[in-house]
């Protein structure tokens, strides 16, 4: 029961409290770039969850069964980014061949994800936080869900923003960032939630 509780806490805290986009600033580029339309935001979010889970599935065993026993911990960054880049390519090829429908909806987002710092960030953080294999997977799922949530919420805000009248020099990115700042402020309200979840 305690393990289960622990997993729930990890999941909830990575979705709401430590939301990667809004409080840790990872994956800001796709957050700002692909959040114009709700459909695109959802597609990107789902692809990120997918890639994060697969990346964790592969990088965690690599760290614990290859890099650590051979004292190659310092190779972490190079190995992880290569694995993620290769994995994304591989997933794209497999999807194209066997699941063309899924590829059509997710395919365009996959190359973008290689350089998404949230993916590299979550794999490295899972190792530094000392999570075990199942905890790592749950935390990746949580981070991915948090990313999707932030994207979808923000796509809604932006569709309103498009119609509003803003000063010339604030047009485009500046006003978007300021809107993001308020969305992020709203997420601060979750800070106490997880600690008191099982109290």
């Amino acid at each position: 029961m305690d393990t289960f509780k622990n997993l729930i806490v990890i999941l909830m805290s990575s979705v709401l409290v430590n939301n990667y986009v809004l409080s840790r600033f990872l994956g800001i580029c796709p957050f700002l770039g692909v959040s114009k339309k709700l459909g695109q935001a959802t597609g990107m979010g789902v692809s990120v969850i997918f890639v994060m889970l697969i990346a964790t599935l592969v990088t965690w065993p690599i760290q614990h069964y290859v890099l650590d026993p051979m004292n190659l911990g310092y190779m972490q960054t190079i190995v992880f980014i290569l694995v993620i880049a290769a994995l994304v390519q591989f997933v794209e090829i497999v999807l194209k061949k066997f699941m063309p429908a899924l590829h059509k909806s997710l395919g365009v987002y996959l190359p973008l994800i290689t350089t998404n710092c949230a993916v590299l960030g979550v794999t490295i953080n899972n190792i530094t936080d000392g999570y075990n294999f199942v905890e790592s997977l749950v935390s990746s799922l949580g981070v991915g869900l948090g990313f999707l949530l932030a994207m979808v919420l923000f796509a809604g805000v932006r569709s309103r923003l498009d119609e509003s009248d803003v000063p010339e020099c604030f047009k485009g990115l500046p006003v978007t960032l300021i809107a993001a700042s308020f969305v992020s402020l709203a997420f601060f309200g979750f800070a106490g939630v997880v600690d008191n979840l099982f109290a």
Binding site: C29, L32, G33, Q40, V108, Y109, L112, L173
Partner: peptide, 23 residues
């Protein structure tokens, strides 16, 4: 920049048919 975070994004070359490019 008309469309930020895309023309400057290194992945732009890879995703020329990609999501943000088309939009």
């Amino acid at each position: 920049k008309k469309s930020f975070a895309c023309a400057g994004c290194p992945s732009a070359a890879m995703c020329s048919a990609g999501a943000c490019e088309t939009s």
